[in-house]
């Protein structure tokens, strides 16, 4: 089947989509957007997190046909190479990226948290990121990065 939807502000069409295919597969294999990662395909790891109509979801658990005429925003749509999103910048600054596999999903989840809660506390960050697994960092640097990103987004300087 054919699926037409908006990705990162651009109207895109995917053809020959199998009816049982996931949004994640369409993004990665048909539209050349490998940002969202494929790790578990069962909603456990969060590495495939994208916005669907402004709500973070696991792209592996959305059927491709369900996004027809809707809006998807992936990590590729958050910043540009010239100007990173404050969350992306903070992950680099704070050393929150090791192998990087979990990073795109965490960036989207953290981006959503900061939009909703400009001053998140540690417990709120842990809760918001509970659906994103990282096997490298031990999470401490990620939590630092979210605090930094929140401060940047509030327009505060950080050391």
């Amino acid at each position: 089947m054919r699926v037409k939807f908006t990705v990162n502000g651009e109207e895109r069409t995917a053809d020959d989509v199998w009816e049982g295919e996931s949004l994640l597969y369409v993004l990665r294999e048909r539209l050349g957007l490998p940002g969202a990662k494929n790790a578990c395909e069962q909603g456990e790891c969060g590495s495939c997190t994208v916005y669907l109509d402004d709500t973070p979801v696991c792209a592996c658990l959305v059927a491709a046909g369900q996004v027809q005429d809707r809006e998807v925003r992936t990590v590729e749509g958050l910043g540009s190479e010239e100007e990173l999103d404050p969350v992306q910048q903070a992950f680099i600054e704070r050393g929150a990226v090791q192998c990087g596999f979990c990073t795109p999903g965490l960036i989207v989840a953290a981006h959503d948290l900061i939009r909703r809660n400009p001053c998140p506390k540690d417990a709120e960050i842990r809760e918001a990121l509970a659906g994103n697994l990282c096997r490298c960092t031990g999470y401490e640097k990620i939590i630092d990065a979210v605090h930094t990103a929140a401060a940047h987004s509030r327009g505060e300087a950080t050391s």
Binding site: E19, G20, S22, E41, Q42, G43, C58, C60, L61, V62, A63, G65, Q66
Partner: peptide, 26 residues
């Protein structure tokens, strides 16, 4: 039927189910 897909898609992704049709409730 598929609503949130959080049960159905796991079954599809892991080849546990091959229904003749999905009925999207979104």
């Amino acid at each position: 039927p598929i609503a949130g897909g959080t049960d159905v898609m796991v079954e599809l992704n892991f080849d546990r189910r091959r229904p003749p049709a999905l009925l999207d409730l979104n």
